[in-house]
Design a protein around this nucleic acid. Structure first.
Lengths: 221, 221
DNA sequence: GTCTATAGCCCGATAGAC
DNA sequence: GTCTATCGGGCTATAGAC
């Protein structure tokens, strides 16, 4: 049966398994880079984690740095996918802020390794990442800032320094992933539970709404 | 003159120069560990930075890890020295919070490398540092939390989740050191200036006082 | 696509002259 | 205390058999 040897299905199968292994490599690399940083991880570590040899990693990725860049790129995809709440709810400041904070905290809970890889790279001065941050993160942040300023102009919100508000929102939500080990020590737990994220979210939402909204719309004393 | 050869002065001189070089090594190591993490720095890098050979580093410090531990210990000394504002002003919540935030932001501005070394270590799960955090940071944090709860009991402040408030204060102030490269991109500057720290401080103080104090005591609309 | 083998380099650490 | 020399090992990356 010639059909079995047709390029189509065969290529597809190969491509599928190739893609699956590639994905496994990227996941393992992400976890290790998150924990030890680029310089603290060897291709050998990553290869052992996925049960193959390091030479195979260099078949799928042209170099260690190329692998790291692919990890960074994927991290940014995930990061950005959690950040659209403000522009999507530009007609409703309270809902926009609530959803933005909830989304960023969900990102920290569901993707702690992505968060830490991103943090490591930014702390290092983003040597390999500055351009991608400029091209993909900055436009999103500036759109958010524009929405804040629009709210202030329309008089529906108090005028706040939107750039610094974004810094505070971004860093405090990200802390629940990046600094989890320290938060656990403070809370006296071995790992954070859903109610801890909920408590952080409630406080942060409270702080932001009190500061930004003209009409106090929420929580009891 | 035998006095010149007396052990006292000679030892003191040797000890002084030894201490000076030791301090130079620690400073250079701190800067490099802050930027690249433990695994991303070699003894050679550090030695070149202070103009000596790596073998000399191993004369002053018994191993790379021992050097790193000494850096961490020094970082914690500095970090803690900026954190006493709350317990020192337990009689005046507004002043305590204003000074705490100002102090932590001053730490970020004056000691960005210390801040980043600390952040790197915590992101990695604090493998070498958990004990020292438990022994030195936790007591300070718990004392602060106790002061918050005391304020709430006395009725001078609203009841807030003090642990999560500390997380937000800590992470957002630290962001001005750790994530400076990204904040600069957002602000469109090559480096942050005093007025940027002032703007962040003003917003954060505003948010915290609005949330914590019963009597709105400060800023205009 | 996955193996073995290996080139070529850099690493942390030690030994010993001075 | 600082130097040269060097060990043993791990590193990224390449070459080539299968």
């Amino acid at each position: 049966m010639a059909i079995k040897r047709k390029p189509g299905p065969v290529r597809e199968k190969r491509s599928d398994s190739r893609e699956r292994l590639e994905q496994e490599i990227l996941e393992a690399a992400k976890r290790l880079f998150a924990q030890r940083g680029f310089g603290g991880v060897s291709l050998d570590h990553i290869a052992r984690e996925v049960g193959t040899a390091k030479q195979n990693l260099l078949y799928y990725f042209s170099s260690k740095e190329a692998l790291y860049r692919r990890v960074l790129h994927g991290v940014l995809d995930v990061w950005l996918s959690y950040m659209a709440a403000i522009t999507e709810n530009a007609d409703n400041p309270e809902r926009a802020l609530r959803r933005y904070i909830a989304g960023k905290l969900r990102f920290s809970r569901e993707h702690p390794f992505d968060s830490r890889v991103y943090a490591n790279e930014v702390i290092s001065g983003a040597p390999l990442f500055a351009q991608e941050i400029r091209d993909r993160v900055l436009p999103a942040l500036q759109a958010d800032i524009a929405v804040f300023n629009q709210w202030a102009e329309q008089g529906v919100c108090r005028k706040v320094d939107a750039a610094h508000l974004m810094v505070i929102l971004w860093s405090s939500t990200q802390a629940y992933a990046d600094f989890a080990s320290q938060i656990c020590l403070v809370l006296g737990k071995s790992e954070m539970e859903p109610e801890d994220f909920a408590a952080g979210e409630q406080l942060l939402v409270d702080m932001v709404l009190r500061t930004v909204l003209r009409v106090p719309a929420q929580t009891p004393p």
